[in-house]
Amino acid sequence: MRREWELEDLIACWTLDEAEVDLLANKSGATRLGFAVILKFFELEGRFPRREDVPKAAVDYVAGQVNVDAALFGEYRWSGSTIEYHRAQIRRFHGFRETTVADEDKLTFWLADKICPVETSRERLRAALLARCREDRTEPPTPKQIERLTGAAEALFEREFTATAMRRFPVSAAAALEGLIAVPDPDPDGEGEAGAAGARSFLQELKEDPGPLQLETLLAEIVKLERVKVIGLPEGLFEGVSEKVVEVWRARAMRMYPSDFAAAPEPIRLTLLAALCWVRKAEMIDGLVELLIQLVHKISVRPRRRSRTS
């Protein structure tokens, strides 16, 4: 929740209505103020706050409405039977219920099936989970539980994502991808046998951008593109997931050495290599168009320059 509030926003969001005031009838002092603040916070956020989540401006504004000194908010007890009773009252008032283990399982599967295929940010997963809880009128899990659920959803999605990719790979494509890493890691000192250096060159080339603008660069990129096409990745390989999900897997593959790939389970290994080839193929096609345009422009400029100097 934001920390700074203008007066008009406080009035719009933190003003107690008649039904809410009725809930305060048998409460006084810190208990009255604490309950009122939590009540309004839950209405706004769909969850119960921690002490540090509550903006001071909201406490001051609510304190004025319930005729309690704002300083007494510091005396409100954030654990024990009183706050548990308050939470139960607030849930009933807003028509919410506590989240069960079954609810947590449903949230995990929902995140894995609906959100993970299109979102890669853990923050967006958390936001989606909270929105789903509010829609279902269930109190969201604690922050620690939310981290556990989003992590479980990501793991579940990864298993399904890689299993789906494996089902779509032709046997020949899987073998070609494995061939990309059938080489030793690069020698950090630039030394080693010439055969090993040559064998690992294509995986390294896949990770490199084109060289200087010249005809040789264009031809080299064409050869590289053809070698990627020969792998035989099927159309629709990553159908059902967003481009940014595939890009995340490609970025992950870009940081890995052959030994890193070899150490990964086969579905993850092949999916990472496929994502690298898939994205680089699209980039190479776009890059070739740009290279060709620049090269043609470079060639066409030379005669004009010669004519000016003749």
Rank of each mutant, 00 (worst) to 15 (best):
141 P>N: 00
141 P>L: 01
142 T>R: 15
145 Q>E: 15
147 E>M: 11
149 L>D: 06
150 T>N: 10
151 G>E: 14
152 A>G: 11
153 A>M: 10
155 A>L: 12
155 A>G: 00
156 L>V: 10
157 F>R: 01
158 E>C: 03
162 T>N: 06
164 T>G: 04
167 R>G: 15
170 P>F: 01
173 A>T: 00
174 A>Q: 10
175 A>T: 10
175 A>I: 04
176 A>N: 05
178 E>M: 06
180 L>T: 05
180 L>H: 02
181 I>C: 00
185 D>A: 04
185 D>Y: 01
186 P>D: 05
187 D>G: 05
189 D>F: 15
189 D>H: 13
190 G>E: 02
190 G>I: 01
192 G>M: 08
192 G>D: 14
196 A>T: 11
197 A>C: 07
197 A>Y: 10
199 A>N: 07
201 S>H: 08
202 F>M: 00
204 Q>L: 15
205 E>N: 09
206 L>T: 03
206 L>I: 09
208 E>I: 02
210 P>F: 08
213 L>F: 07
215 L>R: 14
216 E>W: 09
218 L>Y: 14
218 L>F: 14
220 A>H: 08
222 I>E: 14
222 I>F: 11
222 I>V: 14
224 K>M: 00
227 R>T: 04
227 R>M: 01
232 G>I: 08
235 E>H: 10
235 E>A: 05
236 G>L: 15
237 L>E: 03
237 L>M: 01
238 F>G: 05
238 F>T: 02
239 E>D: 11
240 G>Q: 13
241 V>W: 09
242 S>Q: 13
244 K>N: 12
245 V>I: 08
247 E>F: 09
248 V>I: 10
250 R>G: 05
255 R>D: 12
257 Y>C: 00
261 F>R: 04
